[in-house]
């Protein structure tokens, strides 16, 4: 039990920030991201015994996070992208600075991508290795590279267009 707690604490400290970014990128809302991150780590705790060392711990955790984000669709009250975007702006309104505005704009741009694109791009932005992302997303590495190329281009376009506006 003590070992499990130590292991869990290590996993939490090492991965919580990236999982939070993934959830934030997916939901575009810090409260929901915190809830999803919490739910992810509760599931990690519940399933620690079943971890088989077939993949890295981080891959396993991301996969749980992605599935938690996907099931968020069926449980949470859906909000429109516009509402999400307003929320993003509000979340950053406390410390208005040029950088904060740019980050708010970045999250707004991410929220305009498809669900899977949001998940993939947040992992790319967090510099998760490609093989790991491919495993989490359940697609081949070759296809992932094509997707990433397309998503990067799409995100850059959306961001710049939002910036102009």
């Amino acid at each position: 039990m003590r070992d499990q707690r130590q292991l869990f604490q290590q996993l939490f400290e090492k991965n919580s920030k990236k999982v939070y970014h993934l959830c934030y990128g997916y939901t575009g809302d810090s409260d929901s991201a915190n809830d999803l991150m919490q739910e992810t780590f509760i599931k990690v705790w519940q399933n620690l015994d079943t971890f088989r060392n077939e993949s890295q711990f981080s891959t396993w955790i991301y996969r749980i996070a992605v599935n938690t984000c996907l099931s968020y669709l069926r449980t949470a009250k859906r909000r429109t992208t516009d509402e999400l975007n307003d929320n993003i702006i509000e979340n950053y309104a406390e410390e208005p600075s040029e950088k904060q505005e740019q980050i708010a704009l970045l999250y707004k741009s991410i929220s305009q991508l498809d669900e899977n694109e949001r998940i993939i791009i947040t992992m790319v932005l967090d510099e998760i290795p490609y093989p790991e992302i491919a495993e989490v997303a359940g697609i081949s590495e070759g296809n992932l590279r094509v997707k990433i190329h397309r998503i990067k281009h799409k995100l850059t376009e959306i961001y710049n267009s939002n910036e102009r506006l």
Binding site: F12, Y24, Q38, I42, Q46, L106, L125, T156
Partner: peptide, 28 residues
């Protein structure tokens, strides 16, 4: 901005989870 600049922006962001390890344990 190019993608590299966007990535730098992302990595310099402040948003961090406000849920602690203890809170998670409490919830469990």
């Amino acid at each position: 901005k190019g993608f590299d600049e966007i990535q730098q922006l992302w990595q310099g962001q402040k948003p961090e989870p406000n849920v602690s390890f203890e809170t998670i344990l409490q919830h469990i």
